[in-house]
Design a protein around this nucleic acid. Sequence first.
DNA 1: GAACGCAGGTGAAACGTTTCAATAGGAGAG
DNA 2: CTCTCCTATTGAAACGTTTCACCTGCGTTC
Lengths: 388, 388
Amino acid sequence: MATLKQVAALANVPLLTAYHALSGSESVPQAQRESVRKAAEQLGYTLNITIKDVAALANVSIATVSYVLNDSAPVSAATRSRVLEAVAVLNYRPNINGRILQANKTRLVGYGWHNIKRGHAAPFLDRFTYWMAQAVESYGYHVLTFAHSEESPTEAYQELIQTNRVDGFILAHTNHNDPRIRYLIDARVPFAAFGRANDSWDFPYVDVDGRRGIALVTEHLISLGHKQIALIGWPEGSLSGDARVQGYFDALAAAAITPHPDWLRRTENSATAAAAVAAELLDLPASLRPTAIVCVSDLMAIGVINYLNRCGVQVGYDIAVSGFDDDPMCELTHPPLTTLRQPVEDLATQAVALLMAELERMPSPQRQILVAPQLIVRASTDPQRQFP
Amino acid sequence: MATLKQVAALANVPLLTAYHALSGSESVPQAQRESVRKAAEQLGYTLNITIKDVAALANVSIATVSYVLNDSAPVSAATRSRVLEAVAVLNYRPNINGRILQANKTRLVGYGWHNIKRGHAAPFLDRFTYWMAQAVESYGYHVLTFAHSEESPTEAYQELIQTNRVDGFILAHTNHNDPRIRYLIDARVPFAAFGRANDSWDFPYVDVDGRRGIALVTEHLISLGHKQIALIGWPEGSLSGDARVQGYFDALAAAAITPHPDWLRRTENSATAAAAVAAELLDLPASLRPTAIVCVSDLMAIGVINYLNRCGVQVGYDIAVSGFDDDPMCELTHPPLTTLRQPVEDLATQAVALLMAELERMPSPQRQILVAPQLIVRASTDPQRQFP
DNA sequence: GAACGCAGGTGAAACGTTTCAATAGGAGAG
DNA sequence: CTCTCCTATTGAAACGTTTCACCTGCGTTC
């Protein structure tokens, strides 16, 4: 509508006075305050400092103000300081939405929440989102979160991209045949994922190196003298699940241990399912009974520990147990659980870096990144650590 | 730059043909495709359907298109259907950023992540954010998340509001004297909080009714026949902590039980601190020793359970234990933990409703809302439930 | 048949930026 | 002294919407 300059002109005061009057500063005499306010009302003006006001106060064009603020063109020292002075005095902050419209870039990254059922959450996802937000901000972006429907997850993504709400996406919790990934690839929308999908799909992702992780913990157990080591994994067919099993074989092979087929068990990712499998392992003939049980998730490991506790088996002494993820509750089990810590900060930072490369349309040559997890040794495999 | 209409005119084809040619549809003959593409290049045009294109195709003004899309003015049935047809055929979606600039409303709500140290997280906050996103979307908004620095948390809020990135905020994890709340009140920024701050500050919030919650679980224990009930609370001085202690007294008073002073213990919110306090309680003379221990957090309850397990005390049989929050791990302790479930969905929905009222500048009369948590009985207080 | 009202429709301004194309002014070269 | 060239600056267009104020044409009313 009107500009501050016009209000000032109508009230017949300097621009700065008008500003102070309207922003309610005490330094302007009551009478002037009133007359300025009246002028503003007459023009239907409500205080809102824009680049025009800065330009008016500094006696330059708005183009010059813009150039100073973005230093996108040479400006003489004198005018530059006049502009900056005006900016400071009016407490001006550019309205980002003008910029967005003009550049047709929102500098917003979408991130969709699944509706995580109780207990089925990936416990570290909330910290992932924190680090993601942090990383994204270092590029001048922000994160826009939205809620998925499970049935038609692509809808939300489509809506957001088609209405220009976001520039790209970060995905977590990916699946084999993930329809979101398929859609984003086909629609040529910039994105990066935390987690893999189909091997044959080419898209940027980061993931935790589960194979290396399970190998690490298996090596750790071997170095403690264990020779009969069991693995409780997920049902065959999942990318990350199979990789973890492979890590188990890697470590055994490196130590020249031939794994007995009965040591490898597969079941769904739950505490009770894992407990049932642990029971089977205990029932093996003594010569075959494992002295260590590696689990591919903390949840399963906790099921195993609870079961062993109930049976009177001393976890850590009689049988070693390990998990994967480093859920906060690992420190609270009895005994505390050895596990592999998800390198959440790393994963988030790298995922964001990949996305930024896509957004700049200069995709990095290395678009698939695996990060090794960190072995956290606690009393469930090394009882001396019980009371550190 | 140029519009689709101009490209079509230059290539001497109908607008629709130009559209199909540029969007790479097979239905347009190769030759035409080429000439359209050449025309587009000459004009520096890249395919981007706007309201102008829809208007051109439907042979109406852009105003009319806008009116149809928002039905904000009467339009005859004939033109309306012509417009909708054009929208469908061009696959048009309004660019939200034009709308934002014009309305000066981003329909974005800010939510700041704390940097939660391991194990100090509120375990339900990730689900809170999910429900918050969901609730916000039902009003046509989205959530913008950002990362706090702990030192100067207000900076991020100030930046976002001053640059018009968001319309308002949802806060979680509030403190006494919370500087963010103070700033937002003073700057008259619309917001709503999950959690209370100073009693004397008037602002919209929702919170869990800890007093009622602790009363509920205490009543539950009384109804099971317990008469010697201990409470492990937080150090005096926190609003929510003191309310919970009050709930304990409420329930005891209602049952005409006089609490012995030794039953009320206060310590910091950690498993080990709670375990130490449990030890003191066990050491009380038999006539005073509690048969039930109420804890004001799951974390503390787990510390207590672990300690009792180590001492050979049968939790649930010899001593009942309860927590607060219903962290996922409550189902995984031995025995599973009775607790009070945070009504996360409710809290999120109501917080958002409060914020929306603020945004519409029609604040609801009831700006302070307490929601009762739900008592979840498990084997740690009622052993029959151990194997349901 | 002139005056009026009204429904349906339009042109143009406005939101707050960035940036292109053009201009003014001065220094340096001849 | 004129011409050229460069630097600092500016006016105006553009981004994609919504909405205000106005216009047209038609049917009613007196």
